[in-house]
Amino acid sequence: MIEMRDIWKTYPNGVMAINGMNLSVDKGEFVYVVGPSGAGKSTFIKLIYREEKPTKGKVYVDKKDLSSMKEKHVPYLRRSIGVVFQDFKLLPSLSVFENVSFALEVIEEDTAKIRQRVMRTLETVQLKNKARFKPHELSGGEQQRVAIARAIVNNPSVLIADEPTGNLDPETSWEIMNILEEVNAHGTTIVMATHNREIVNTMRKRVIAIDGGRIARDEIRGDYGYES
């Protein structure tokens, strides 16, 4: 599903963020990416959805070579990759329904299908009764659930979650994790960068620890392994 072959990433300012990385993630896996700040986690995540390109090496997602992909093909790639951020990135002037439907409107999906899929997805994240609300009328946890709904409404094969619980209290964080678990159970591959020690140690999924741009540890049922 995701494969990195001898990946190096050096930024124009000379900072080497990824240093000879090799990795594969199978379809349907749930992977936590951990490591200290500045270790290369954000660059690693951005390489998967083609926000960044490697300086050297090959990145494959669902057998597509992202390293040599033309810019005009990137929007089509992202139809199969959902992304959830720490700060939600919702459009404040749009309702919950409109924030989620936007992902389908840009690919010119049929109007009737849009409503059906959006409402089904909002039901999955337990927000069907708040479809007409604006983001400012929601709690932080509810806003993150809208962000998840927007990311999964296209039925992506891969979901990237970059610190999705970073701005949430512990109880709300577990609500978000339960939703991600359900999404994963339906076959979506999930790669989640996190500093949340409790979640990683409790869930016991595959853990990839990145340090100095390299994979320091890759364990099938790993723990966090760093001081939080």
Rank of each mutant, 00 (worst) to 15 (best):
M69P: 08
V74Y: 06
F97I: 12
L122V: 01
G57C: 12
S173I: 02
I45Q: 04
T121N: 02
L122Y: 12
E198C: 01
A216T: 08
G14C: 09
E163S: 01
V100I: 08
R132G: 12
R50T: 09
P164I: 02
S95H: 11
D6A: 02
P36C: 00
G212P: 12
V59M: 08
T43M: 04
D26E: 15
Q116E: 15
K205M: 02
I114F: 00
T121C: 01
V34Q: 11
D65Q: 03
K9E: 13
F133R: 15
K41C: 00
K64T: 14
A209T: 03
I160L: 12
R145M: 01
L66F: 12
M119Y: 12
L127I: 09
R79S: 02
E175N: 11
T111M: 04
L23S: 03
Q116Y: 04
R204N: 10
V118R: 06
N178G: 12
P75S: 02
N178K: 15
Q143C: 05
K89L: 10
H73R: 14
I2H: 01
V118S: 03
I81G: 03
M69H: 04
E198W: 00
N167L: 08
D110M: 01
R115K: 13
P92G: 01
T111A: 06
Y76Q: 12
S37E: 10
M4I: 12
E109D: 07
N155F: 11
I81Y: 07
V106E: 14
I18G: 00
F85S: 06
T10R: 13
K205W: 03
V100S: 02
Y49T: 06
M192E: 06
E3M: 03
L104M: 11
E123A: 06
G35T: 06
G222M: 11
V153I: 00
E219D: 06
Q143P: 09
L94Y: 14
P135R: 09
G82S: 04
I18H: 05
T194L: 00
